[in-house]
C-alpha cells in the first residue's frame, strides 16, 4: 500500500491550504483594521494588507510552478 504517498498528499494539501488561507485572512483582517475610524496609521496597515495578499498570490504561483511540468523541466 502507498501509505507514505497518502501521507505526503495529506501533508502537502494541509500545508498549501493553510498557507494560502492564513495569508489571505491576515490580509482581510488588516484591510478591516485600516478601514476603522480611529486608526493611527491606516496607510501602514493597508500596505501590510497588500503585502499579505501579494504573498498569498506568490504562494499560489509557486505551487503552480512546482506542478506544471513545463517549468520543472
Amino acid at each position: 500500500m502507498k501509505w507514505l504517498e497518502l501521507l505526503t498528499v495529506a501533508g502537502a494539501t494541509l500545508a498549501a491550504a493553510v498557507t494560502v488561507v492564513v495569508l489571505y485572512s491576515l490580509g482581510v483582517r488588516l484591510t478591516a483594521i485600516a478601514g476603522d475610524v480611529q486608526q493611527a496609521s491606516p496607510g501602514l496597515k493597508r500596505s501590510l494588507a497588500y503585502v499579505c495578499f501579494g504573498l498569498c498570490g506568490l504562494a499560489v504561483l509557486f505551487g503552480l510552478y512546482l506542478i506544471i511540468p513545463y517549468f520543472s523541466g
Binding site: E5, A17, V20
Partner: peptide, 23 residues
Amino acid sequence: PAQGFAAETSTASAILASSHLGF
C-alpha cells in the same frame, strides 16, 4: 464567503498535490 474560500483552497491544493504526487 470565508467558508467558500477555505473549501476551495483545500480542494485546489488537494487535487493539485495528489495529481502531482501520483496519488
